[in-house]
């Protein structure tokens, strides 16, 4: 372990994500698997885990929900962010046809997956959902990385009027693997609706973490630690516990 724990990186680009948050592109690299995360620290505020929406350079997509995300959303090009990681296990690329389902800020963990899949000439279809059009994140980014990008909003303000799972249902038979990240209610519904012959399904979970490195146990989901065993899990491994999270 190096003497310095955190890599300090400068914000070089800030993209507004509707009315809900921002994507920050930084000037550093944290080479990682898609779905892995970093512990992000704003000195004097707090430290929390964030998925790496890109690794070279690092990108963070942040929905504003509390003091730390408020501070991150207030950063501008030239400002600094502190990161340690990458931690955890990411999404495996499985088969030729990848179906990506993102709810709200969950789309952030699918961004690097789509980029890697494109690099390997795999077929990607992406479904992104939110309660309303202004709460969608990264649709602008995923468009170029997906052969097909579909939007669903609960209130019908953009795309399919209904849940992202309903919108994606007709594409399930097409997929060799399904990758999902979003609210746990969405992931629980996805797990519950799976048929016996369904393709492998990977979900990326979010939990309150302290250490990020498999020591403290704060982020457990059943017997699994989200930070060290996950955050990406085969859905059947965590299905019984989905919805028990406190994020």
């Amino acid at each position: 372990m190096a003497e310095t724990l955190y890599a300090r990186m400068r914000v070089v680009r800030k993209v507004t994500e509707g009315s809900i948050g921002v994507t920050l592109i930084l000037d550093g690299e944290l080479p990682c698997e898609p779905g892995q995360f970093a512990m992000v620290w704003v000195p004097g505020v707090e430290e929390r885990p964030f998925t790496l929406m890109n690794d070279t350079p690092v990108g963070l997509t942040i929905a504003e929900v509390g003091p730390l995300t408020h501070a991150l959303c207030a950063l501008n090009p030239g400002d600094w962010v502190w990161l340690r990681g990458p931690y955890g296990h990411g999404y495996p690329l499985q088969g030729e046809r990848l179906l990506l389902i993102g709810g709200g800020s969950g789309s952030a963990s699918l961004a690097l997956l789509a980029k890697r899949a494109k690099l390997h000439d795999l077929h990607v279809r992406t479904f992104l959902g939110a309660r309303s059009a202004s709460l969608l994140m990264l649709a602008w980014y995923m468009a170029d990385l997906s052969e097909k990008l579909s939007i669903a909003t609960d209130d019908g303000t953009l795309g399919f009027h209904g849940s992202v799972l309903q919108a994606a249902a007709s594409d399930l038979p097409w997929a060799t693997a399904v990758y999902a990240c979003g609210p746990e209610g969405m992931l629980a519904a996805l797990a519950a609706s799976r048929k016996p012959d369904a393709p492998p399904c990977w979900v990326n979970l979010e939990r309150v973490m302290r250490c990020g490195i498999g020591v403290c146990g704060s982020c457990h989901c059943g017997s699994q630690l989200v930070c060290a065993d996950g955050p990406v899990f085969a859905v059947e491994k965590v299905a019984a516990y989905l919805g028990s999270g406190h994020t």
């Binding site: 372990m1 512990m39 707090e46 929390r48 302290r210 250490c211 490195i213 020591v215 403290c216």
Partner: peptide, 20 residues
């Protein structure tokens, strides 16, 4: 205590979880 509360360093760990 809020994060950062558990950190790795060269000699092991340092923690101030605060008996949560």
């Amino acid at each position: 205590h809020p994060n950062p509360a558990v950190l790795p360093w060269r000699g092991g760990l340092i923690n101030a979880v605060g008996l949560a």
